[in-house]
Structures are given as C-alpha cells and as structure tokens.
Design a protein around this nucleic acid. Structure first.
Lengths: 192, 192
DNA sequence: ACAGAATGTCTAGCATTGCTACAATGGCGA
DNA sequence: TCGCCATTGTAGCAATGCTAGACATTCTGT
C-alpha cells in the first residue's frame, strides 16, 4: 500500500504542476481573461472538477502561477544587482530589471501584483521567493541606512506605479527610461 | 417637433446621469463586483437594454463614473495645494490629498486608475478634468524645472503604487505617512 | 382625425463564466 | 473473485454581459 500510493502521490504532484504550467502558458499567450476553467481543463486533458481537487478555485491557480513567477523575478533581480558595476548602480540595475520583467512578462506581472491572490505579503508566513524579491530592493540601500525597508517600499511602489500606469496607457510608455533615471538619482544619493 | 424633442432630450440626459450616479452609489457601498447590469437596471427602474442605449457597455459606464470622479479629485488636489503653507509644502499637501482620496473613495479610485476604461490618458483628446488632476502634480514643481512633467509622472506613479499596493495588502498599510514623507523629501528638494 | 412610420421600451433568451452534486468507472485489497 | 473506495466525468446551477425580437407609444402626413 505504500509503493502504490507513493506513485499516485507522484502522479498527482505531476498533474498539479501540469495545471500550473498550462495556466501560465495560456495566460502568457492569450492573457488571463482567456484562462477559463473549461479551457484550462481541456488543455490538461482532464475535466473541470480535477482542477478543484488540486486548487481551492481559480484564484488559487493564479496564486500558484504567481508564486512560481516570484522565484524567477527574484533570480532576475539578483542577477541584475550582481552585474551592477558598483553599489551606487544597484538600484538602477534592479529597477531596470524590474520594469523589464513587467514588460516582457505582463501576464506573470499581473498575477503577482494586480490580480487578487491568496498570497500573504509582508507577514510572517510570506513565502520565501516573495521575500527574496523584496530583499533585492532592500539590498540596493546601504546597511547603515536604518530605514532601508522604507526606502525599498517607496522605490518599489514607484516602479510598480510606473509599470502599471504605462501598461494601461495612463502615462506614455516611451519615457520609462527617463523616469527610472529620475527615480534612481533621487533615491540612490545620500542615505537618510 | 422642437419643444417635444427637447423635453425628451432633457429627460434622456437626466436618465443618463441617473445611471451614472446609481452605478457610483452601488460601487461605493458594495464594490464594483456588485455592479451588474441587472442590479443597475433595477436600481434605476428600467430594464437592462436601456443601459445599452446610453452606454456602449459596462466599461463605458465605469468610465463615466470615473470621469465625474476626476473632476472631484482635481478639486480635492487643488484645495490641498492652495492650503499648503508654501511652495515647498505643495507636493506633500497634494500627495497627502491623493492618498486620502484613494483611501476614502476606493471605488472611485478603482474606476479611475485600475479598472479598464475607455478614457484616453495623456493625449490630445484627454478630457479636461483628467488633465487638471495631472496638472496639480505638475504645479507642485517650480516652472524653472524644465522636466516638471517627468517629475509629476514619477511622483504620481509612486503615490499610485503606494495606494494600490497597500490597498491590496502587498505592503503594510500603516506606514503611508512615512512613505509620503520620504517621497516628498526626495522630490521636493532642489529642482533638477 | 386617422392610418402608417418611427421611436422607444421590455420580455425573453444566448453564450459564457466559476463552481458543484452526483453517478459511474475502474483499480485496489481481502 | 468479489466488494469497496478513491478518482474522474457528466450534467447542471446560478450569475454574468449583452442582444434579438415583439410590443407599445408617440409622431407625421394626408
């Protein structure tokens, strides 16, 4: 009874991931509004109810995709920060990478930061990848700065605002570089 | 044929506004997800199709509510800026008023800045109230600053990010005052 | 004043959504 | 081999945005 149920467990986990990647692919190619439970079920070649045996609902599936995406974003930001020529350039590098991610992977960005999800931000049980993302921003400021978290929150907010307002056409999308420059020069200066 | 059709026109305009205010009230008391075409029709005591004789669809109704709200936000920001003790305090006053609006009128804020709308931002045919809102941010920076618009875009983006990330629980909502302080001290300094 | 045209409104319905109750199937253990 | 239990699919619910067609009401021309 052990080996069999283990295999079942494996299969189940595999299918779990299959659903997540199918949802992600569908969202990335056709947008989240095209991700319906029916289309998703057809895509994984199962019927709808199996989705609900794996996830509490559609929001939970979005959350699962978002969680995966957080891991990737954290790595993306980390790479950018490491590649920065000096600590003074860290914020520019991370900010640029962040905006780049928002443009290159709009569906993932939506799942992470716009759509309603079950994910807990900024609390004790915040998943590690999410904290890692935030920490990349924090690491852009020197440890002497006692308000690093606050700096990170504000710069992140600014970048998020820029990303989402330009995506929805509320500010012209052609000047993101200049906006990033301005933000960085205003925040990367003296600690305080 | 003139007087009668004029009266009809009047009645029609009245009903048009009735729909908008009904949608707004419903959204403000129960949230936009409660604003369905059926409930809205029942509320204005007409059948659903009349909504579509006034608006192209639900998004257009949201847009109409948002447009009204822009007028109010512009006035709100303007009052705050006028009440600021000096030009150095303008940005703080306007930023504070902006965040206040986002918290006090979350449904309107959503309609204006989050939900998909038909409204044209940052273009020639941008409605006056929307431009007025943006101009309040621009006016927070001295005319000598040749990049006032850029400054306005970035500070607005930051405020929007703060508003939306705290509303959705992605950053703790208890530190908005501190974030605003930091943003203002970083941007209200020397022109440039 | 009255028939016909145009305008306006409602009833009823379509296709789609997220989600679920229930039945049937099929593989497991005894 | 038989019965049981988990797993999966069929079919359906209530709600959504939106619309076609019938109905009534008002206006126009004789």
């Amino acid at each position: 009874m052990s080996a069999i149920s283990e295999r079942r467990e494996r299969e189940r986990a595999h299918r779990h991931q299959l659903i997540i990647t199918a949802a992600r692919e569908l969202a990335e190619t056709e947008g989240w509004e095209a991700v319906t439970t029916r289309r998703l079920a057809e895509r994984v070649e199962y019927s709808q109810p199996v989705l609900y045996s794996h996830f509490d609902g559609k929001d939970a599936i979005v959350s699962a995709v978002a969680l995966d995406a957080f891991t990737e974003l954290a790595a993306h930001l980390h790479r950018a920060r490491q590649a920065a020529p000096g600590p003074g350039q860290a914020l520019r590098a991370v900010g640029g990478a962040y905006l780049d991610f928002a443009v290159q992977r709009p569906a993932l960005y939506q799942a992470m930061f716009i759509l309603p999800t079950d994910l807990k931000f900024a609390s004790a049980e915040t998943p590690a990848p999410m904290r890692a993302c935030f920490d990349e921003f924090v690491a852009c400021f020197p440890p002497e700065n006692e308000r690093r978290e606050l700096f990170a929150e504000v710069t992140w907010s600014a970048l998020h605002g820029m990303a989402v307002l330009s995506e929805s056409g509320r500010i012209p999308s052609g000047w993101q570089e200049e906006r990033l420059d301005l933000l960085v020069t205003r925040f990367a200066g003296t600690a305080g």
